[in-house]
Design a protein around this nucleic acid. Structure first.
Length: 591
RNA sequence: GACAGUGUAGUUCAACGGUAGAGCAGGGGAUUGUCUAUCCUCAAGUUGCGGGUUCGAAUCCCGUCAUUGUCGCCA
């Protein structure tokens, strides 16, 4: 037998008990006359004692050979510590070891298995099996497991059925780039890995399953970020005979349940915000509403002519940073301006107006506007003495986007983005279509099966180009703390409307038939009204734990280049494999 | 594809253009209750790689690779 107890459970009540423990050597403290060794497993740490006066001499010498991360099995007696450690759950007891067996020695590990993570990502990923021994990383994965189990339990209780959908499916040109898999039996042809089970879940609705969910891997071959992996997990859901309202209520219920169950947090009813409101107040379709600092636009009446930059701007808009007037010297403003001018943000400049504590006003555009005008701005922004306005101008869409970045940065600097605080909301009424200047055609903002709002159907069937841009969809996103957690829509279940949508998206009848014929076919045999959504499961884990990177919630994540540093994938394959698949590698020049 | 940062001992980081050094880890020793023990001591380097400038390069320049973050991209 390897163990009678784990390394986290022994207490004073076990005094005198003969126990067997197995685990990893965390480290040893050799005081000469006695030696302490910490034994670790997933449940905790237990101190082993080797005592000159009691321990057999050979056993003591054997204990001295133990190195970090050796796997050992010990037999011994639970005894009370003479000097207790109140900081550890097992700190009152220790094991007087009578027998030690080295199950497996270990090389000196390249990193310390301690809670504090100091190493760079590359070494952590290369030795992920060591990194995963760390408590904080293990806790993340336990959290993820509990979240998945709680999700299944909740949805199953609401009569959802979990159905697995295929991983080898068909490539479609819409949306993200597909990962493709060559088919040996169908030479020259390829499967694609699903970007999501979208069409399958709709088919399941046509089949009458009514309420479906799946915790499922999805694949997108796009560039990566801290919160984006090439393979990631969704809680994918679909329901029949529901309105948008019922979908939102169902999954707001799920989210509230998960926060209560895993974080003991009672979330309030989620506020709703239209896409247009989110864009005009926050410059983002995923606003972080843990703090205010909402956008305020300056119109013609507040902007007498004189400052040519503002005079010619499509939009002049700013935020009010409370109590920051005294915090920013000219030099700080200059640095902030340079930060805004980085190519990633691309602002041309940044205008400030300081409302000093003594009531005086100072501004970078003081030359162009008198104090009366500036005070008018301060009033419009609701500024108090001590506050500072930060104002941008330019093309409408770009300027909003830039100000969003500035607002978030100021929120960070001012400590307004508390990771322990959770502010969810629904963003609703997304546009149906998005005009793409490059390809000069419409893209589906959500996906090609998204239903327009009922009152927009008529306009969609008959309207002109500008009308199309203004169409709104029954599409919605759940946002928590500025992170898009999930999104979905009511789908089109009417074949005519779906055809029109494909039309608008620039599909010919033949293309639509070739890509989505199976779904269109299914829709001809009685498709129920349906809709659903998908949550980014990795992101939900990270947000609930107040972290930005999803990598620490994935057991074996990939790096920025999409490489698995531990198994060293992707990798070349053998010529025989290529031949079997009728593939030839044709690298571009220079590689 | 673009921008920025990083790359030095196993690891985390220092080092004005002038002898590459410290903490942790590791080896050896001391140590009568430690708990990230402590103290003494030893060992450890292609400064990512390739060029260039210079009397002299970890440091400056060019290229390249790796890595992180961001933009583009991600219906």
């Amino acid at each position: 037998m390897y163990r009678t107890h784990n390394c986290g459970e022994l207490r004073m009540e076990h005094l005198g008990t003969e126990v067997v423990l197995s685990g990893w050597v965390q480290g040893s403290r050799d005081l000469g006359f006695m030696m302490y060794t910490d034994l670790r497993d997933r449940y905790g740490l237990t101190q082993l004692l080797f005592n000159e006066q009691i321990t057999d001499k050979d056993l003591f010498e054997q204990a001295r050979t133990l190195g970090r991360e050796f796997v050992i099995r010990v037999e011994g007696t639970v005894i009370e510590r003479q000097s207790k450690n109140p900081n550890m759950p097992t700190g009152d007891i220790e094991i007087q070891v009578s027998k030690l067996e080295i199950l497996n020695a270990s090389k000196v590990p390249p990193m310390l298995i301690e809670d504090e993570i100091d190493e760079g990502d590359d070494i952590r990923m290369k030795y992920r099996y060591l990194d995963l021994r760390r408590k904080p990383v293990q806790q993340n994965l336990f959290f993820r497991s509990k979240l998945a189990i709680a999700t299944r339990a909740y949805l199953a209780d609401q009569d959802f059925i979990e159905v697995e959908t295929p991983v080898l499916i068909k490539s479609t040109p819409e949306g993200a780039r597909d990962f493709v898999v060559p088919s040996r039996m169908n030479k020259g042809q390829f499967y694609a890995l699903p970007q999501s089970p979208q069409t399958f879940k709709q088919i399941l609705m046509v089949a009458g399953f009514d309420k479906y969910f799946q915790i499922v891997k999805c694949f997108r071959d796009e560039d990566l970020r801290a919160d984006r992996q090439p393979e990631f997990t969704q809680i994918d859901c679909e329901m029949s005979f529901v309105t948008q309202e019922q979908v939102l209520e169902t999954f707001e219920g799920l989210t509230r349940h998960l926060f209560k169950k895993l974080k003991n947090v009672d979330l309030p009813k989620f506020p709703r915000m239209t896409y247009d409101e989110a864009m005009s107040k926050y410059g983002s379709d995923k606003p972080d509403i843990r703090f205010g600092m909402e956008f305020v636009e300056l119109g013609k009446e507040e902007l007498p002519e004189g400052f040519v930059v503002f005079d010619n701007a499509e939009l002049v808009v700013g935020i009010c940073a409370e109590g920051q007037a005294a915090e920013y010297s000219n030099k700080d403003i200059k640095k902030l301006t340079e930060w805004m001018q980085r190519p990633q943000i691309g602002a041309k400049g940044l205008v400030y107006v300081k409302y000093n504590a003594d009531g005086s006003v100072k501004s970078s555009v003081g030359k162009f506007y008198n104090d009366e005008v500036l005070k008018g701005w301060l009033e419009k922004f609701g500024a108090k003495p001590g506050d500072m306005l930060l104002i941008l101008s330019g093309e409408e869409e770009k300027t909003r986007k830039q100000l969003n970045e500035l607002r978030l940065e100021m929120g960070n600097r001012m400590g307004l983005r508390n990771p322990e605080e959770f502010k969810p909301l629904w963003v609703v009424d997304f546009p149906l279509l998005e005009w793409d200047e490059e390809s000069e055609r419409f893209h589906a903002m959500h996906h090609p099966f998204t239903s327009p709002k009922a009152h927009d159907v008529e306009r969609m069937l008959n309207g002109d180009h500008e009308t199309m841009k203004a169409l709104r969809a029954d599409a919605y996103d759940m946002v928590i703390n500025g992170v898009e957690i999930g999104g979905g829509s009511i789908r089109i279940h009417d074949r005519e409307l779906q055809s029109r949508n494909f039309d608008l998206l620039g599909f010919t009848k033949e293309e639509a038939q070739a890509q989505f014929g199976f779904l269109l076919g299914a829709f001809e045999y009685g498709a129920p009204p349906h809709g659903g959504l998908a949550f980014g499961f990795d992101r939900l884990c990270a947000v609930m734990c107040g972290q930005n990177s999803i990598r620490d919630f994935i057991a074996f994540p990939k790096n920025n280049q999409g490489r698995d540093m531990m198994i060293e994938a992707p990798s070349p394959i053998h010529d025989e494999q290529l031949e079997e698949l009728c593939l030839k590698i044709n690298l571009p020049e220079g590689d």
